[in-house]
């Protein structure tokens, strides 16, 4: 598994990093920590921001925290593999530097320059990430400091799954909403990992319209439930009326992870056109996993 953690210098990013560390501790995923400098930063120097810039300081802090938790000798991330690699130190000037990499798994710290959401999406695509993790403000909105719509843009456009961390809360239940979008093998595997790591019970919610569920959706709910229970995951199925779903997640999600399959044919996008994703991300009081 490859995890891309996109962080700025705000407290919500620090919370999200804790989730990344938890995931890495169990999955031994390759992890990239990414910061994005504003476009105004110069691209032709060794680093586009001064070393005392808040983002650079935050990236240092994230690396330190990650290594404090997982960088000890014997850990797959322990910096034990040394090699000499050519690195650009300034435009037109390269230096062969001694580089240490994780004993078995990589922790990369990267800085890009440009629009944060676009650069996060570009990095995820280039690295072949399986999961993007980012924090966002808690409460009734799900925002970044600058620009505010980074979480929505990343969730709406990523090719892979996205975990939005709102607060540093334990996850005791995964509430996964099944509707008429494709349930990929990768998304089932992601739920498996989340349920295993957090030892969380799984609740599958099938959506009904005017009290009725389509046969195909009901069948899918049963099939997905069987998939998890066959693998020893405690699973409970329930139905919820679409119109009431927003109220359900506002009322019920606390120490939970709301998982939404977001395909192009999502019924939610029909029922709640344009802004449905923003509404659910904002309504949910806990973290949200958008699956693909």
């Amino acid at each position: 598994m490859k995890i891309l953690f996109a962080g700025d210098d705000r407290p919500y990013s620090a919370y999200a990093l804790k989730k990344v560390i938890d995931l890495a501790r169990n999955t031994w995923a390759d992890v990239t920590i990414l910061g994005v400098a504003p476009t105004s930063a110069s691209k032709d120097v060794d680093i586009p921001l001064p070393s005392n810039h808040a983002l650079i300081q935050a990236l240092h802090r994230y690396r330190r925290e990650f290594n404090d938790e997982l960088g000890q000798a014997g850990s797959p991330y322990a910096p034990e593999r040394f090699s000499y690699e050519w690195k650009m130190v300034k435009f037109g000037l390269w230096e062969e530097m001694k580089v240490s990499r994780g004993a078995r798994k990589d922790l990369k710290i990267r800085l890009r320059a440009g629009h944060p959401a676009n650069e996060i999406l570009n990095e995820a695509k280039k690295e072949g990430s399986d999961l993007i993790v980012l924090g966002c403000s808690k409460g009734s909105q799900c925002l970044w400091q600058d620009p505010a719509d980074v979480p929505q843009t990343v969730v709406g456009n990523a090719d892979c799954s996205v975990l939005l961390v709102k607060e540093d809360k334990p996850i005791k239940r995964i509430m996964a909403c099944i509707e008429d979008s494709t349930v990929s093998q990768e998304s089932l595997e992601m739920i498996n990992q989340m349920a295993t790591i957090h030892q969380a019970r799984l609740e599958l919610v099938g959506l009904t319209k005017d009290g009725a569920a389509k046969q195909v959706e009901y069948t899918k709910l049963i099939e997905v439930g069987d998939y998890f229970s066959d693998r020893g995951i405690s699973v409970k199925n329930r139905l919820a009326e679409m119109k009431e779903f927003e109220a359900v997640i506002a009322k019920e999600t606390d120490e939970d992870l709301l998982a939404l399959w977001m395909g192009k044919k999502s019924l939610l996008s029909v029922l709640f056109p344009k802004d449905w994703m923003d509404r659910f991300l904002s309504t949910c009081q806990s973290s949200v996993l958008v699956l693909r």
Binding site: K2, W28, P76
Partner: peptide
């Protein structure tokens, strides 16, 4: 993961993963 390495596995990959 630890037990796998102790038993001498070359690598430990958590699903999901890309073919690459």
């Amino acid at each position: 993961a630890r037990e796998s390495y102790q038993k001498g596995v070359f690598d430990f990959i958590a699903k999901p993963f890309k073919l690459g």
